[in-house]
Design a protein around this nucleic acid. Structure first.
Lengths: 119, 119
DNA sequence: TATATAGTTAGTCAAATGGATAACCATTTG
DNA sequence: CAAATGGTTATCCATTTGACTAACTATATA
């Protein structure tokens, strides 16, 4: 329990690599086999496999094997966690900016009032 | 040129650590000095400083020093890059799902027609 | 059944990461 | 000016990461 913390670690970590983001982009347009995923990259298969496993443990990709070919597909719920964290942060940050702005406006009003009433 | 690729690496990488995400969360509610940021963590100052530097090179945080205290603040443009990548991916992925759905519906219609016309 | 195909395991290696300590500025404060 | 405060540098260390090769397993295919 509370693994979801680590899960965010792994999801963000998984996305911190251009090869893996490229794999994600490829999978966004449809599932693919390991071989298909490997082809565009100048990289040995085992290295690429490791990337796929990283994406899987990050909860971003899932795969299943039938016969000798393993088919990978995107797991949108994984990206959801990442997006949630980001929007949460932005919410906090924007709320604070709003308070700051409100405060600034109130200061301004006060200043104007003071001026009108003869400093 | 094309450093923005590496920049995404660094931004995602920076967020792949709970300490650094906590720092981000703290900064979302307002700027803070290095010492203030350090206090909640059971960690030596230099270690924490390193985290701050990682966030800075990821473009997520900026800081300036006056006197002997360095004040850190969030740099929302950094998160923007990350969010952009995510929404871009989701756009591609959703577009594909839409096409898929449209295709499925057309298949269904065809089947119904066939049935009506006597198999 | 022999061969080719598609992945997988195991093991090596250099570089990067996350943490620590010790010693060192530089600016306040007493 | 002496001491305390806030941060910084320089090293060090264990672990993780990203890539490789070699050897292996399991399924198709000829």
């Amino acid at each position: 329990m509370d693994n979801h913390l680590y899960q965010l670690d792994r999801a963000f970590g998984a996305l911190a690599d251009p090869t893996r983001r490229a794999i994600m982009a490829r999978l966004a347009q449809g599932e693919a086999s390991v071989g298909e995923l490997a082809r565009p990259f100048d990289m040995a298969l085992p290295s690429l496999m490791k990337h796929i496993r990283v994406l899987e443990t990050g909860g971003l990709v899932e795969s299943e094997k039938q016969g000798r070919v393993r088919t990978c597909r995107l797991k949108p719920s994984g990206l959801k966690g990442v997006e949630n964290w980001l929007t949460e942060q932005r919410a906090i940050w924007e709320a604070r900016l709003d308070r700051l702005e409100a405060y600034a406006t109130s200061l301004e009003k006060k200043a104007r009032r003071k001026k009108r009433d003869g400093r």
